[in-house]
Amino acid sequence: MPLDYATVKDWRFDDVRQRYEQKDTMLYALGIGLGQDPEDTGQLRYVYEKDLRAFPTMSVILGYPGFWVSDPRSTVDWVKVVHGEQRLTLHAPLPVSGVVTGRTRNTHVIDKGADKGAIIVSERTLHDEDGQCLATLRSSTFCRGDGGFGDGDASPEALPAAPDGDPELRCELRIPSSAALLYRLNADRNPLHADPDVARQAGYPRPILHGLCSYGVAAHAIVKTFCDYDAARLTSLNTRFSAPVYPGETLQCDMWRMPDGQIRFIARAKERGVVVMSHGTATVQS
């Protein structure tokens, strides 16, 4: 059944004020695989209170308005929604602890057709207590059962594809078997990521990793490869989710530096040879 365009486009989100502590900052970093080598001082700075730093993609779990499409008033068939894209622009380093406010609005509601679904693009800005904007996040939700409502918004500019051929650089990071159980303590406690029975009911052989955890692992690969673990140099990270990742797999991130300095990447679940993230772009400061 088609969604109601006006209801979704004009959905009112309350501001979300969130306090987080140093232990939350460390838990997020552990959840995306930092600290697996406890003697690597580059990783240690994100998981140990001595000279602690916040990993920038932690922005995705802060000020989150919740799974609002499950509200019956949204008119969205929430059972059929999946995370399509995630875009992040960082304006200032995240504090290692503090209070932030997330402000969310829906910017695009796109009709792909009666049999092709719809896309909702939401924008969230993250602000510190002084009102400074720390990050802008844009998330695309693919609503597989909600197309055919008629006139909608035009799609935002598409993310560019990675070049053909062999990558300039490659980074492989093993995802711990317990990664989903650890990452879910940050925010998303959907049983799909923990309960084997729920995963099988959803059509998966076992629990899958959160898409935003895979996203964080890709950021880890880029920061390791291009920034020597100085994550403050990462200023943007965008990608399209194309397949689930399973805990225990190896994420293979293939990367190209473009003439304009932009980094493009794709990520595969190495053991299966499946592309799990495509159309990836990142920018890092020199």
Rank of each mutant, 00 (worst) to 15 (best):
T235C: 02
R17F: 06
G102K: 03
R264S: 10
A179I: 08
L182W: 02
Q201T: 13
H210I: 04
V217L: 09
F241D: 07
L181S: 14
S242T: 15
A162H: 04
S122Y: 05
S155P: 01
E249C: 12
A199D: 03
S236G: 13
S214A: 12
T141V: 14
S70A: 11
A219L: 05
C253K: 06
I120H: 00
T89I: 10
T89A: 11
R184V: 00
A154P: 14
R144I: 08
A154K: 14
E168W: 05
Q132M: 10
L209W: 08
V60L: 01
D77Q: 14
L34R: 12
T101N: 02
E123G: 07
P205H: 11
G145N: 00
D10V: 01
Q22T: 07
G165Y: 06
G31R: 14
Q285K: 12
D146Y: 07
Q262I: 12
Q262S: 15
D254T: 07
P196L: 00
A118Y: 00
L134F: 00
Y246F: 15
Y246W: 09
Q18D: 11
Q285T: 14
A29L: 02
H220M: 03
I110V: 12
P163S: 10
P247F: 02
S70Y: 03
P156Q: 03
N238D: 15
D71K: 15
L159I: 08
A162I: 05
K23N: 03
K23F: 09
D77P: 07
I32T: 13
D188I: 09
P93G: 09
R87F: 06
G84V: 12
G211F: 10
R12Q: 15
S139H: 14
T239Y: 01
E168N: 04
C143E: 02
V8T: 09
T136M: 07
G152D: 07
P56T: 06
L251N: 00
P244K: 04
H210K: 07
F226M: 13
G131P: 00
A194P: 04
N106T: 14
L173I: 10
L169D: 06
G248Y: 04
D51I: 07
R233S: 05
P247R: 04
R19D: 01
R257K: 15
R144V: 05
A243T: 10
D77L: 12
L212M: 14
L237G: 01
L52N: 02
V69E: 05
A179Y: 02
A243M: 11
R138F: 04
R257V: 13
V69I: 08
P167D: 06
A232C: 12
N238G: 03
Q262D: 15
R53N: 02
G152M: 08
V8Y: 02
Y48I: 00
W256Q: 04
K80W: 11
A118F: 02
A269D: 14
D128C: 05
I32N: 11
L126Q: 01
T7W: 10
P38V: 13
D111F: 01
D40F: 06
K23G: 04
D153M: 09
W256G: 06
D166F: 02
D4G: 06
I61A: 11
R105Y: 01
Y229M: 13
Y46Q: 07
Q201W: 12
L44V: 10
P56A: 05
A232L: 13
M255G: 09
A243W: 11
